[in-house]
């Protein structure tokens, strides 16, 4: 049947040299797809299956029965939001300096952001404990100077997590903002100035709105990545207010409760996907992930 239907199309002139069936490159998509199906999609399916069957959907009830879990949902969300806001407040001016500074300065600032981006998260987080712990550098210095009498609680709380995660995720905020600033036509702010706007007004009415796509992309990626962070909250966060990823690890590694662990994981995944999906209403997924770089 199908064979009988094809000849008419064959008589049509080929639309281009590389018609769909003949491009030699098309087949190269398969290894990647098979790989992703087996090692990315299948694991998530397996996790969902475990959550629903080991022993049953009641795994999810833990969020209603145990306040530790319902609270972790809020802790995770609030921490991620907080980190994204703080990172934005730091990254925007930083990106603006990179944009406005002479070339050499921009390069130095770029390297400064890139290095932590690639230095082991574990090493960085561990280094923060050296600074922040009760006997750490900051507390010792302040005690020696007589500024404080009791050591300050700088980690094992929201402050510690925020410091560590903001530090870790700052590059993901700086890059998209910086690249969206670069895309602003350089004449626009001078134009606003000749039209009567003060520097501050020109910034607020022209530059800022035009850099918003980068801000949104950076905010989303930092927010979403914060949701699933594990190492930083585990080392710097409060043992009482766990984030969801910590609970997942705890359930699987310590409690050997695969069903519950999977259920928490699935809720975390769904939360992530929901926020990402909401984000893609505003900007494209690729721009979220790659920070709008072409």
């Amino acid at each position: 049947m199908i064979e009988e239907m094809t000849p008419p199309t064959k008589t049509l002139p080929a639309p281009s040299r590389r018609s769909p069936s003949r491009s030699p490159w098309t087949a190269l998509i398969w290894p990647g797809l098979v790989f992703m199906a087996l090692l990315f999609i299948l694991p998530f399916i397996q996790t969902a299956v475990r959550a629903l069957t080991d022993p049953g959907p009641q795994n999810f009830a833990i969020f209603f029965t145990d306040p530790v879990y319902s609270r972790s949902l809020i802790t995770t969300f609030v921490t991620a939001l907080f980190v994204a806001v703080v990172a934005l407040a730091i990254a925007y001016p930083y990106a603006y300096i990179m944009y406005a500074a002479p070339k050499a300065m921009t390069a130095v600032m770029m390297v400064l952001v890139l290095l932590p981006f690639f230095t082991s998260l574990l090493v960085r987080t561990y280094a923060w404990t050296v600074w922040l712990q009760e006997t750490g550098i900051i507390n010792s210095a302040l005690l020696n100077l007589g500024v404080i009498e009791e050591p300050l609680q700088l980690m094992r709380n929201t402050l510690g997590v925020t410091i560590g995660m903001t530090h870790a995720l700052l590059p993901f905020m700086v890059f998209p903002i910086y690249s969206s600033m670069l895309r602003i036509q350089p004449d626009l702010v001078p134009a606003a100035r000749t039209l009567g706007a003060t520097p501050a007004l020109a910034f607020r009415t022209v530059f800022l709105p035009l850099s918003l796509p980068g801000v949104m992309s950076g905010f989303l990626i930092v927010f979403v990545m914060s949701l699933g962070y594990y190492v930083t909250p585990a080392l710097l966060g409060s043992p009482r207010d766990s984030m969801m990823s910590e609970l997942v690890v705890n359930q699987i590694e310590q409690q050997i409760q695969f069903g519950t662990g999977s259920a928490i994981g699935i809720v975390l995944l769904v939360l992530t996907l929901a926020i990402l999906f909401a984000g893609t209403r505003i900007i494209s997924f690729k721009d979220i992930v790659t920070g709008g770089r072409p």
């Binding site: 797809l33 992703m36 990315f40 299948l42 694991p43 979403v224 949701l227 990823s245 992530t272 992930v289």
Partner: peptide, 26 residues
């Protein structure tokens, strides 16, 4: 397909780790 390939950058790695743990046990 592009969304699929880029997703691992942004998905919670802990959940992927748990899933791979199950798959690898099998």
């Amino acid at each position: 397909i592009q969304v699929l390939i880029l997703s691992p950058i942004i998905m919670p790695i802990v959940v992927l780790a748990v899933g791979l743990y199950f798959v690898y046990s099998d």
